[in-house]
Design a protein around this nucleic acid. Structure first.
Lengths: 346, 346
DNA sequence: TTGAAAGCGGTACCAG
DNA sequence: CTGGTACCGCTTTCAA
């Protein structure tokens, strides 16, 4: 039952006080070179390493930053977790992760747990569901724990965020399709009450609107709201759509999983891609490049997004305690269109 | 800078000692019903919730269990994380996650961090790389922190684990292929030094050996060790393989991502699936069912695996402090063959 | 340059 | 039933 070696054991073994051990191990220059080295050596011999709980309690710093994601069974959020973890680690922080399961109530509870855990900062990837009120955020403000949103934000909140510029990305993607001669776009979309869906739709509409004047036949945009947003959903929805024999010559999806699903569905229905139908995804995940027909997509630069979020958080954590630093800022990352065969001119 | 409400604030507001507050909030029956209710009400009004660091320090229990995974950007480990998180939560524990990036050194460091964090238990999904020594495990034993391995184990260690019975699964899969008239199996495999690869290979060989006597032409098994094990790897390796015009009539992969890649590669090379070539995956991930040609696979029952691992860990945590409980046990979960179109008789 | 001691926010034992 | 109090393991003045 005895836990590990404590600082007392080291102090005793080195014939000094615990204070000295603490100072020495934390590299405080007040400790004589020779003493420091002896203490460090002894600590190492004993296999001592400090109890983070006690350390956190005394320093009033847990060394923890919290990350909430709606889902972990997708490449997209997997990447987010990985990069945030990496960036947090580089800044000397340990990540504590929680999964909200796309459920507002769960998300609220998670934030509460994070607060109890004394996280020093918080990164939230919001759920992809309509959310009326984000009351937990008020509590968060009270605790003064810095928080930044990633991949999306809650419009009712004035809080910093960093996300991909989905409007620009969707727009440039649609423009590409239109420039390749496509006219009847269909967007396999998410819940229309969710902010990111709205942003994406706005981008697509923008492109269609601009094109409508210049080109004939007139471009159209059909939107299908899907419940789930995974591979199977893309497959099913594309099947449903294509069997209707509507004048659709391009399918755009919310992510690459769905695009791959839609592509495979179209192929098994006998469609020629890109001859009869273009398919485009979003996120530039690994498999979009290696599909039967490589899929055009938009890169979100998740790596950069995560690093910026962590940087922003670190800055806020440092400023915390000082005055509020003006407006919380939102960062939109530029999209990068990745053109592949699935959208070539027919 | 003031943190949240402390127990002192509650005690003062309720006109009682902190001891009473603590007892009341923890449901100790010694506190008078009426007092308890008052304290609880006041605590709620004040928005008090205990500081986990302090609580952990005093109780000598962090409430944390650690999970190490080699990778988070795959459906497979994503599922693992999700289910472990869920099961841990149901047992009142908070998960703390770390990603080993398939790197032994990183894995070792992670374990050290977990120890410092005072995790009460540990679940390790081993890396998929050859590992000569797992010395960190000795330290772990010294700390008496219970640890269970999941998805695989280190053969040099006598430690409990729970994993899918990959040998049985591979065997039954190969038997199925052979029974459908396939004779020349090719296994897109992982590093041959890794235990799970060996187990899988053993299963396949077992099936081929058994069949070799009975059926003609004689069955053969070709093994290709792949570096990466993702969609793109499956695609590339299948391309390389199929372009060689070898007598291969079935491809088996290590997971469904690779199977999907291989399938798509074969299709784009003009192969008829399952007419000319069978493709089989492993894990029964969502997209295997919805591929252009639905893919035969083996279900690992990840959900059950995770629950068992957590149960086992909980049991060990309870017994911890008492005597060692006999032999650490390993659990192998029965495979479930999921037959789909990709392996139908030609 | 080092040590003593007062916390950090709880818990839990013991006395009343 | 409730309050006093001694820790838990580490940090951080303050004196010596």
């Amino acid at each position: 039952m005895n836990d590990l070696i404590t600082i007392n054991d080291v102090a005793r073994a080195a014939q000094v006080s615990t204070a000295t051990v603490s100072l020495a191990l934390n590299g405080n220059p007040c400790v004589k070179q020779q003493t420091r080295e002896r203490i460090i050596r002894i600590a190492k011999e004993l296999g001592y390493s400090p109890n983070r709980l006690a350390q956190g309690l005394a320093r009033r710093k847990s060394g923890l930053i919290g990350l909430a994601v709606p889902d972990i069974e997708s490449l997209y959020y997997g990447k987010i977790v990985r990069h945030i973890d990496e960036a947090a680690g580089q800044n000397g922080y340990q990540l504590t992760l929680a999964i909200s399961n796309d459920n507002p109530e769960t998300e609220r509870k998670i934030i509460g747990k994070f607060i109890d855990q004394q996280v020093e900062g918080l990164i939230v990837a919001p759920i992809n569901q309509p959310v009326q009120q984000v009351n937990y955020f008020q509590e968060l403000v009270k605790t003064k724990i810095p928080c930044v949103f990633i991949t999306a934000y809650y419009p009712q909140l004035k809080a910093p965020y960093v996300m991909a510029d989905l409007q620009a990305g969707s727009c440039v993607l649609a423009e590409h399709l239109l420039s390749q001669g496509r006219r009847h776009l269909c967007f396999l979309s998410g819940c229309p009450e969710v902010i990111t869906t709205q942003i994406r739709t706005a981008g697509l509409e923008e492109a269609v609107r601009k094109a409508a004047g210049r080109q004939a036949p007139k471009a159209s945009l059909r939107i299908i709201a899907c419940q789930r947003l995974d591979y199977a959903a893309g497959y099913e929805q594309a099947c449903l759509l294509l069997k209707q024999n509507l004048p659709v010559d391009a399918i755009i999806t919310i992510n690459d999983e769905m695009a791959l699903g839609a592509l495979n569905a179209a192929i098994s229905l006998g469609f020629d891609i890109p001859g009869q139908l273009a398919v485009a995804g979003y996120d530039n995940m690994i498999f979009s490049s290696a599909a039967t027909v490589p899929i055009t997509t938009v890169d979100q630069n998740i790596d950069l997004m995560c690093r910026q979020a962590v940087d922003m958080l670190m800055t806020m954590m440092k400023q915390s305690g000082q005055e509020a630093n003006g407006h919380p800022s939102g960062i939109m990352l530029e999209p990068r269109l990745v053109i592949r065969r699935s959208t070539e001119r027919p």
